[in-house]
Design a binder for these strands. Structure first.
Length: 156
DNA sequence: GCCAACGTTGGC
DNA sequence: GCCAACGTTGGC
């Protein structure tokens, strides 16, 4: 059974377009440094799950595209790179603290589905984006809300 | 740039 | 294990 997710990204650093332009349209989603988000990736995600790509901290905030989980159980290499902003000196190479999944680009929406619109959708009440404290960089989306948001994004 | 809401850290 | 201090996130 397919599960659904939302991944936040700052498009100035890595956008839906960047994902589409990767070789094979795939990229390891590194840099997640939150335990709850990591646990979703490590324990729950399966290859074939679908994920919204959400642009945050930018001019056009909202859902920008769709991706598919194409690999799981990967070690995030940036934790061992002292040059990286995601370097974690406390992570041991024989027991890495941070993992990642790989995402494959599926679709870039013609227009961003804006956060402001999502907040006004009466049926969208469960997703972390509209709930208090929804600051997770990786969050689950229930199947019903995923369908509603996908339809809204495609018709926007 | 502001600030609310979280998460993490570290002293005790 | 508590909790104050601090850092980060992210919309506005």
């Amino acid at each position: 059974m397919t599960q659904y997710w939302l991944f936040k990204t700052e498009p100035d650093a890595f956008s839906i377009h960047d994902l589409a332009n990767q070789p094979n349209k795939r990229e390891g989603w590194d840099g997640i440094r939150n335990y709850q988000a990591r646990n979703f990736m490590r324990d729950t995600m399966k290859v074939g799950d679908l994920a919204f790509i959400y642009h945050s901290s930018c001019q056009h905030i909202g859902i920008a595209g769709l991706a598919r989980v194409s690999d799981t159980g990967l070690t995030d290499p940036s934790q061992f790179n002292p040059e990286s902003r995601y370097f974690d000196p406390k992570s041991a190479s024989d027991n890495p603290r941070w993992c990642m999944v790989e995402l494959e680009h599926v679709e870039t929406f013609e227009r961003i589905l804006p956060l402001a619109s999502i907040k006004q959708m009466p049926s969208i009440i469960d997703i972390g984006l509209v709930k208090k404290g929804g600051r997770l960089s990786v969050m689950p989306v229930n199947a019903l809300e995923f369908d509603i948001l996908l339809a809204a994004a495609r018709s926007a």
